[in-house]
């Protein structure tokens, strides 16, 4: 009896799992790490406005998501910190619609134990500062801009030996938050979060020192025709969502940057 009912139970469990995953109303969003706090808030208010919809967000590095989507990762929307990644995916047929720019990112100098608001990039050559965290310029968009800002200030050679590289911008902030690096160049969107801004302070790096951090998103091919994905994408253009993005220091399409 027991041996006979067991396979049935397994089948039933599998069927249940399948039906759950096939249930409409749930989407998975892959978002660049700089969106961590802003996106969490947007998802919360989106769910309040659309009670039936479920949104799961995974944060990580834009480059990794790009690779994963190429390999068939089950993400319905992809928010990249660098619009070049979704553009490339769209070109290769991985997008359901055109690439949409959603914000310009800004970089700041931030410290957890020094008042970085009184600092400029030139202070990084100070002998007291032994470790500076930036995101890996090789593949992290924020790291690339950090390197550009240091280079155009003529500081790269001098600070290069002090640099440590975060895998993405959130890990870079974490190196600074734990005090293992005294300062870091992180996303403004992370630095304005109370958990970070309550410690130390930040200094906005002038945006003429680096190329713009143009960020874009796509609805992926697998979410083509998915009503929830469409609703969520549209919601980013709504007033409440834009307000959240602005509060986290993002410059929205059609707006101008603060200097």
């Amino acid at each position: 009896m027991k041996t006979k009912s067991l396979p049935k139970a397994i089948l039933a469990a599998c069927a249940l799992l399948l039906s759950l995953s096939a249930q409409a109303g749930k989407i998975t969003v892959a978002a660049a790490a700089d969106l961590k706090f802003a996106m969490d808030e947007i998802v919360t208010i989106f769910k309040q406005a659309n009670p039936g919809d479920e949104v799961v967000v995974i944060y990580g590095s834009s480059g990794k998501f790009h690779t994963q989507i190429r390999q068939g990762a089950p993400y319905d929307l992809y928010f990249s910190a660098d619009i070049a990644f979704p553009r490339e995916l769209a070109k290769s047929g991985f997008a359901a619609a055109t690439v949409k720019p959603y914000a310009l990112g800004r970089i700041v100098l931030w410290s957890a134990n020094l008042d970085a608001s009184r600092m400029t990039l030139a202070n990084l050559t100070d002998a007291k500062i032994t470790r500076i965290a930036i995101a890996n310029p090789k593949h992290a968009p924020y790291g690339k801009r950090a390197e550009e800002a240091l280079r155009s200030s003529g500081l790269w050679e001098k600070v290069d030996p002090k640099l440590v590289y975060g895998e993405n911008i959130a890990q870079t902030a974490q190196f600074v938050l734990t005090g293992n690096a005294q300062v870091g160049i992180v996303a403004l969107s992370l630095a304005v979060n109370p958990e970070l801004s309550s410690k130390g302070g930040y200094w906005l790096i002038p945006d003429n020192l680096h190329k713009p951090l143009e960020q874009g998103f796509i609805i992926t091919k697998r979410a083509e025709g998915n009503a929830v994905a469409k609703r969520f994408a549209d919601y980013l253009d709504s007033k409440p969502a834009r307000a959240v993005m602005t509060r986290y220091g993002f410059v929205l399409p059609g707006e101008t940057a603060r200097k």
Binding site: G63, N136, K138, L163, V164, E167, N180
Partner: peptide
């Protein structure tokens, strides 16, 4: 290594991290 290394060439960038970087950088 990824969590405490800081990805420094010749200091903490071991082969496994180097491979990860290559994959991330496409």
């Amino acid at each position: 290594v990824l969590m405490i290394g800081g990805n420094l060439p010749g200091v903490t960038r071991v082969a496994s991290v180097q491979i990860y970087d290559y994959v991330e950088g496409l």
